[in-house]
Amino acid sequence: MNDPSGKLFEEKLQSLSLQLQDNQACDIDENIIQRLRESRLQAINNSRSGNAITLNFPAWLAPVSTVTAYASVALIAASLWLMPIAPTKNTLPLDDLALFSASEELEFYENLDFYIWLESDNDAS
């Protein structure tokens, strides 16, 4: 063998493989070429629409908006924490609960008009 290092073979192989690549590129079906073109145009359109979004929202806006979002959340949490708890009108006081739970006292209050009339009648007599 006259090419012990293999350099000559490698050069010939390189040349042949590039020729093979050229020939295969010539042989690609027209339908495939059309679909590759469509894929390329789709990719380019996607990249352009992506760039448009980037222009609308500059890169420096991302950290600023993140910090603003965190500050807003912290502010809301702090105000909720520090806000005094006001009694609401809808809640039942404990006395009312006790009243409802005692059936005898409930009966007394239901007959209250009668007791008032009885007392006034006794006073009159």
Partner: peptide, 12 residues
């Protein structure tokens, strides 16, 4: 197609 789309999307 996938490779072209990804390159365009991420690295154009």
């Amino acid at each position: 197609q996938d490779a072209m789309l990804k390159l365009a999307d991420k690295y154009a």
